[in-house]
Design a protein around this nucleic acid. Structure first.
Lengths: 337, 337
DNA sequence: ACGCTTACATTAAGCGCTTACAATAAGCCC
DNA sequence: GGGCTTATTGTAAGCGCTTAATGTAAGCGT
């Protein structure tokens, strides 16, 4: 069956299409009586206005793009859910794009989103090519970065204070009495990762504790990679008494490496993660971790995206949110204290 | 800056818009020379054809809808990722819709997707209102159900053999020597859940083992709810030696309840889950579970969705895939054997 | 009864694209 | 070289909608 159009409704209701359109959009000039009739007809005919057609007339598409590295990664799937809920209640739908952090995919997705005239794009994926982004921005597609920053792109961004997050982790471990620590970081091109490491290091430095050059190991961001890297760390002569992992996936890898090596957590080894994903509540021992206020961040980002469109160049915002320490079971005093 | 249109390209290249359109779509009639010129101009002008406009002319929107209960649930986020990858390589993008299994949300999303003229909808969420679905089907929007079935909707579906999955779980437990078992199921309106319970029961029945009426407890599908329900189960006089949980979330809840109750898994209690999500690899002990061949299922579903559009009423397919048992650490012989 | 405003409806143009059809130029045969 | 076909490009209609401009009738004061 062919879809019902505004013409069908108009004919059926005995008015012109303009009147139907006005009735739908609540533009001033339709009498209550007519309006009611029209709505009744719409219902009877199961009429759904075509977003496509109205978008073509320069109205919104009510569709947003969300770029993240991977929806199946709990950290990002939780973001996706928040975005979706917000979007949904504002009448938008969201196209989810998993980029695997590959510039090539980022690019392709961005182009796709442009072709589909989305009303805005939320970017939570690392990307080096600010170029494509800038092009989009110039075509006045609103863009806001979330939990990531891209060099040289003039878009709003909503971030966690990763430096402080690293510091929080360090302070927690320091307070517990640790002094031999190591860092497990995802590959150091991701801006947030770098900041976390810096923050952690700085806190240690302030406490007068050095972190050897080989104190930070980097690997891919996956449980498997984390496990392998952690295993190497644990096999060292001077085994650290605590490991700061730049995200929960890595921390879980470390947890597994410890289990295999017969190292008890937290008795013999403290492990602290980052992100506070659902995963960290599920491990045994449950993971101590640094939480980002994602719900709030998403809300802010969404506001920036939808709230102030077309405001020309409204002043580029850069909102930084404070992380928090969530103590669970994977951290404790160092052995022999 | 206003977006470049086909007119700009045509003018710049000194041809008509029809020629540009033909060049882009490879419709027979453009000489190589012209085509090359046109492509050069498109590149220079950064021209992106508007999917919106071409969709209005009856072409595809290259957008798909995916309805699932919750993207932030690992089982579904993994599905979402598979769908997205397939879609992406076929040039589509996907709008993800988390329904929380609420009919009202299902309905609203379905309407939204219709308004946006998506080329197809994948449904992995329970829904009772086949009505809206049937309406959509009549408007010739292809629909395929995945891992769920809805009553009375004439759409293709790709399912796991849940009955067999339940059986697999039972057989595993039986082989281990268990005889006092219980089932933790998500609320019994979900078709897959019912089948799993039935399959489990049937295998028990065939082995000559009875499952008391109070042997199956149902609750919401979350770790928290599972934990609470499992705790009640463990507090019973005749504590079961094994619990079959209808999904991993519930199983993790059970794991947590056991931990709190000081019941050792698997020594004193075996727990088996369903779905083989990432969560099941992360717990300690790692979860024995029933795996659904999701990647394959998604591939099949996608094929049915995109492959045969407009084929009128091609014969309604109902593909059932075999589940598999994944033995990890959470199951073992019953105590005292 | 007249002109005026106000309230409601309709007409028609056009968003960026596709496509059937018309038009033109070129190539070919006898 | 006239009339034909063939290859290529242009013209224009229309997809379903919004909206400015226009029209019409009713309501009002004098």
């Amino acid at each position: 069956m062919k879809a019902t159009t505004i013409y069908d409704v108009a004919k059926e209701a005995g008015v012109s299409i303009a009147t139907v359109s006005n009735a739908i959009n609540g533009k001033g000039n339709v009498s209550k009586k007519r309006r009611d009739e029209i709505f009744k007809v719409m219902e009877r005919l199961q009429y759904q206005p075509s977003v496509i057609a109205s978008a073509l007339m320069g109205k919104k598409t009510y569709t947003l793009g969300l770029l993240i590295p991977d929806v199946s990664n709990p950290f990002f799937s939780e973001i996706a859910r928040s975005v979706e809920d917000l979007a949904h209640s504002a009448g938008y739908s969201v196209i989810v794009c998993s980029t695997d952090n590959k510039d090539e995919r980022v690019d392709k997705y961005l182009r796709l989103l442009e072709q589909k005239s989305v009303d805005g794009i939320l970017i939570g994926t690392g990307t080096e090519n600010g170029e494509t982004l800038t092009q989009l921005a110039e075509k006045s597609i609103p863009i806001v970065m979330i939990a990531r920053e891209a060099a040289g792109v003039s878009a709003h961004s909503v971030l966690t204070d990763d430096f402080k997050g690293g510091g929080l982790a360090a302070e927690h471990l320091l307070a517990l009495g640790h002094s031999r620590m190591a860092i497990l970081a995802e590959k150091l091109e991701v801006s947030s990762s770098v900041e976390r490491v810096r923050g952690f290091r700085f806190a240690l430095f302030e406490a007068g504790i050095a972190l050897g050059n080989d104190g930070v190991v980097s690997c891919d961001s996956s449980i498997k990679a984390g496990k392998k890297a952690a295993a190497a760390l644990l096999a060292r002569e001077e085994r650290p008494s605590a490991i700061f992992c730049c995200n929960d996936l890595l921390a879980i890898g470390a947890l597994q490496a410890a289990k295999e090596a017969g190292v008890k957590v937290p008795e013999q080894l403290s492990i602290i993660g980052f992100d506070d994903t659902i995963l960290s509540t599920v491990t045994n021992p449950a993971l101590t971790t640094i939480a980002q206020p994602m719900d709030q961040m998403v809300k802010l980002a969404f506001g920036l995206l939808i709230g102030a469109p077309e405001s020309g160049q409204p002043i580029r915002q850069r909102i930084v949110m404070p992380p928090g320490l969530i103590v669970r079971e994977s951290t404790g005093e160092p052995p022999g204290s």
